[in-house]
């Protein structure tokens, strides 16, 4: 489903490579964790995968579409949940969702039904007409995810979806990812929360300084390196130095 070959990215006016000759591939139908410390290159890699960053070296193929040549086709099949809340703060949740849904050319009637279902599922039904700026952090995250589901993606890419949210929101989000995956869809998500990744990921890829460190199922990796959990493995591989 996802093939990345010799991916290299250097931002203009920077000295180091943000992504340094990264190659990996994943099968469809899995929950994949892209893990790494701050500044490892997770967001950059994801931005390349979905075509937000166009200026890079290497080859990226998702769901049979080359990102450089068949981006429009690809965008119908994938969706990204940005790290930042990509919603209009002064619009209500419903207004936001209606707008993005209309941009996907979804007929109004089915859009309304879909939005109502998702709001129910994510526990936002009673807050549908509240402005996003009045939402709590967890509610914003959930709304941010709903906005990325409107095009019924086969592959959902999430950038730190559980960073800084309350326990209830987090468990709701993780449960959703499992359900979503159970329907045969794929998930790629970045995190620096290792216990969370260990519990829901079928496979993880750890990167640091833009380079691949290791790839495999959490169980495989823990066993191979004789550690107790993913977190100790992670520290062993990426070191103890604090990243900013």
């Amino acid at each position: 489903m996802l093939h990345v070959k010799h991916l290299v990215k250097q931002y203009p006016n920077t000295e180091h490579l943000s992504v340094d000759d990264l190659s990996f591939s994943f099968e469809a139908g899995k929950i994949v964790g892209l893990l790494g410390p701050n500044g490892a290159g997770k967001t950059t890699t994801i931005s390349i995968l979905c075509g937000l960053i166009k200026d890079f070296n290497g080859e990226v193929t998702l769901l049979g579409c080359n990102v450089k040549t068949k981006l429009q086709d690809l965008l119908h099949k994938i969706s990204i949940v940005p790290q930042q809340i990509a919603l209009y703060p002064t619009l209500s949740c419903k207004e936001n969702l209606m707008y993005y849904g209309r941009l996907y050319n979804i007929p109004s009637k089915s859009l309304k039904i879909m939005i109502s279902d998702y709001l129910e599922q994510f526990g936002l039904h009673d807050h549908a007409d509240k402005q996003i700026k009045n939402y709590s952090g967890g509610m914003k995250r959930r709304a941010n995810i709903i906005a990325s589901l409107l095009n019924k993606p086969e592959l959902l890419i999430l950038d730190e979806p559980t960073a800084g949210v309350d326990v209830q929101s987090r468990s709701m989000i993780l449960q959703f990812l499992k359900d979503f995956n159970a329907k045969g869809n794929s998930v790629i998500y970045t995190s620096h929360l290792l216990d969370e990744a260990e519990s829901i990921c079928d496979e993880v890829l750890i990167i640091d300084h833009g380079k691949k460190v290791i790839q495999g199922t959490p169980q495989e990796l823990i066993a191979a390196h004789q550690t107790d959990n993913l977190e100790t493995l992670f520290l062993k591989l990426t070191g103890n130095t604090v990243r900013d």
Binding site: G51, L52, Q72, L75, I80, L87, L103, N105, A147
Partner: peptide, 18 residues
């Protein structure tokens, strides 16, 4: 800066409509 721009760009179709 609020990120909606990113989402808008990821929606297939011509940006000129927006």
């Amino acid at each position: 800066t609020q990120g909606s721009w990113t989402r808008l760009k990821l929606i297939p179709g011509s940006f000129s409509h927006i």
